[in-house]
């Protein structure tokens, strides 16, 4: 979603070549190592956009004997789409969390110590936080502020994860005492009447 909208936004600025778009995107997010976008992704996205009529292409005759390249430009429909995107909030990322699965598994199966699981996760998060912090410290706020902002965002996410870990750890004993939610074994065939009643 964000790459698609980024392309629309960059094309709204002025029409661009495909490779030019990729470079512009990278400088926008602060570097290829931060948000690596493959050329293929750019071109498939452009193709999809063109399909939807949000972008149109013109061929640019190269100077001299250079081969012609496609130049992408935004259509009025694309501009409308972009405007709508600016005006709506970004959907929060879905909470499909691998660690959560790990923790719940360790709690329900008992084949790992949940506390150790938490500790391991915390170590990992701190290591990440340490690395990002170091990276952030090495960035120059005069020329790389955008990059710093992105790093800050990561830092804050990790902070939130760490706080959440603390919260879970503090109430680990409580959650252990609660019965692990067992999946309901659904009898084959039609449910009996009282089952339906219970569900309601």
């Amino acid at each position: 979603m964000s790459v698609r909208n980024a392309i629309l936004g960059l094309l709204d600025q002025h029409p661009r070549h495909g490779y030019e778009l990729r470079a512009a995107f990278e400088s926008l997010v602060g570097g290829e190592d931060l948000w690596d976008v493959k050329p293929a992704q750019i071109y498939t996205t452009l193709a999809r956009l063109e399909e939807c009529g949000l972008v149109q292409t013109t061929s640019d005759l190269g100077e001299g004997d250079e081969p012609g390249r496609r130049i992408y430009a935004i259509t009025p429909a694309g501009q409308a789409e972009l405007a709508a995107w600016y005006q709506t909030g970004v959907e929060n990322g879905h909470q499909r969390d691998e660690f959560f699965i790990k923790l719940m598994l360790s709690l329900s199966t008992g084949n790992a110590n949940p506390r150790r699981v938490i500790q391991a996760q915390r170590s990992k998060l701190y290591q990440d936080l340490h690395s990002i912090t170091t990276r952030r410290d090495q960035s120059n706020p005069r020329s790389e502020l955008a990059q710093i902002f992105l790093l800050d965002k990561m830092i804050m996410h990790i902070e939130a994860d760490l706080r959440w870990l603390d919260l879970v750890e503090a109430r680990l004993d409580e959650v252990k005492r609660q019965p692990v939610p067992e999946p309901e074994i659904r009898p084959r065939g039609r449910p009996k009447k009282n089952d339906v009643m219970r569900k309601a």
């Binding site: 979603m1 964000s2 790459v3 190592d33 931060l34 948000w35 690596d36 990322g93 990440d128 690395s131 990002i132 990276r135 965002k153 990561m154 996410h157």
Partner: peptide, 11 residues
């Protein structure tokens, strides 16, 4: 690591 992280956060 950072790149991996971005995957988690971003698109």
């Amino acid at each position: 690591m950072v790149a991996g992280m971005m995957k988690e956060i971003g698109d």
